[in-house]
């Protein structure tokens, strides 16, 4: 049986995420997930369509997400992205969301809901 596709809008609703920008791109499907704060690691190991969970909020995360064609970014621990980050992401139509949860909790919830790092 084919697994039901999970959209960004689904996880925004389920996990009470705050959408910081690119609200019009929330119907994107999530193909997988990657968590990490080292940008080179995310560049090397994330896959197209991944939702990326990180604590970084500076503008360079937008370049990483665009280059790897990630579905979106969730910033954890109640951290806020910088204004410049939001500006850049909005211009690219890249959704950035924030969560008050720590990384472990959020990744666990995403995994439980069917988002996997492997495919």
């Amino acid at each position: 049986m084919e697994k039901r596709k999970i959209k960004l809008s689904d996880i925004v609703k389920s996990f009470d995420l705050k959408v910081e920008c690119s609200k019009n791109s929330l119907d994107r499907e999530i193909e997988g997930g990657y968590a990490g704060d080292l940008l080179s690691d995310v560049m090397a190991h994330s896959k197209k369509g991944d939702i990326w969970i990180t604590l970084q909020g500076h503008p360079n995360i937008v370049a990483v997400a665009i280059l790897k064609e990630l579905a979106g970014i969730i910033i954890i621990n109640g951290r806020e992205p910088e204004q410049e980050t939001i500006k850049k992401a909005e211009a690219e139509g890249l959704p950035i969301m924030t969560s008050d949860l720590p990384m472990f909790e959020l990744v666990g919830k995403l995994y439980e809901s069917g988002v996997s790092g492997l495919r």
Binding site: D37, L38, A44, N60
Partner: peptide, 15 residues
């Protein structure tokens, strides 16, 4: 702290 300088840059390029 910004997530750079993990010592993976040049190895990633070479790979």
């Amino acid at each position: 702290e910004m997530g750079f300088g993990a010592g993976m840059g040049l190895p990633n390029i070479k790979k």
